[in-house]
């Protein structure tokens, strides 16, 4: 049986740890709130751009644009959104596992695809396995704004436009609620099924539908990436909050158990001492 001092040490270190996890839980809760708000303020933009894109793509007959057309797939790009740091439960591993499985099912050789990694965890994972990481971005702030991601979003879309990739998929954790996030796969490009729930208006185009699509489609694709990032950030903070809450609860449980063992051991020691004193006194008589 462990000595009294050992047990005391375990209690103390577990207490310290629970303080840390508690603090992390609370910072994540604050970030989670902001993250959800950011994701919400993006919704009107996304809805609007979707509506207009749908109106043009479906309304203007005979309008062609490379981004709307499926072509023979020689190389596929996978945009993978993870966090920079761990300690968020299964948040990162869920996304990565899904991507890894998909890749192994769909592709035979490493030349057929490349990864665009958002977040350190994804980058490290794929680099370690010798998988081609075409672009990477780490250190995205917890409250990202569009400028943070603009560079990588436009180069990703650019790589589709110049033929480096013939297909682009995006993988991220879709935020459902504080305790539930779902790994989501979305086909980013080519844009095949743009639909809008709103009633479509028929527009005049100034100067022409082609020139508008030229501006609109890259902007639309970049928005999809940004939207996924916001969604993923909200999920990350929610996942970390839940993970840290569980850690704090477990620590409390452990402290309770250790205290019980400690008190028992203390009681045993006292009983033993008394027995020894009584025994010693009896021997003298």
């Amino acid at each position: 049986m462990a000595s009294l001092r050992d047990i005391k040490n375990s209690i103390n270190s577990t207490k310290k740890m629970s303080q840390i996890t508690k603090a992390m839980e609370m910072t994540s809760a604050a970030k989670w709130n902001r993250g959800v708000m950011n994701a919400k303020s993006f919704v009107p933009y996304m809805e609007k751009i979707q509506e207009v894109t749908a109106a043009i793509a479906s309304g203007a007959q005979g309008v062609a644009h490379p981004m709307l057309e499926a072509r023979e797939v020689k190389k596929t790009g996978y945009v993978v959104m993870t966090s920079d740091r761990g300690l968020a439960g299964a948040f990162n591993s869920n996304v990565i596992r899904r991507v890894y499985q998909t890749i192994q099912e769909r592709h035979k050789s490493n030349d057929e695809f490349a990864i665009i990694a958002v977040g350190r965890v994804a980058r490290d994972f794929f680099l370690k396995r010798g998988i081609n990481v075409a672009l990477e971005i780490t250190g995205v702030s917890d409250q990202p704004n569009f400028n943070d991601i603009k560079e990588i979003a436009s180069s990703t879309v650019g790589m589709f436009a110049d033929g480096t990739f013939d297909e682009l998929y995006i993988y991220y954790s879709h935020y459902i609620s504080a305790i539930s996030q779902e790994v989501t796969e979305k086909k980013l490009l080519p844009l095949s099924d743009i639909t809008s729930s709103k009633e479509l208006a028929s527009y005049e185009f100034e100067p022409s539908p082609e020139e508008i699509l030229e501006v609109l489609l890259p902007q639309y694709a970049e928005s999809l990436i940004y939207g996924a990032l916001l969604d993923s950030k909200a999920s990350e903070h929610a996942a970390r909050m839940t993970a840290m809450k569980n850690a704090t609860d477990n620590a409390k449980e452990m402290i309770k158990n250790y205290s019980l063992i400690y008190n028992r051991a203390r009681q045993a020691a006292i009983t033993q001492e008394i027995a020894e004193i009584v025994g010693g006194a009896a021997a003298l008589e």
Partner: peptide, 19 residues
């Protein structure tokens, strides 16, 4: 300022999209 020139929009304008 659209790419094809300046646009002035008044109420009840016809539906239009312009970069």
């Amino acid at each position: 300022k659209g790419i094809a020139g300046e646009l002035g929009i008044l109420p009840d304008h016809i539906p239009l999209v312009a970069p």
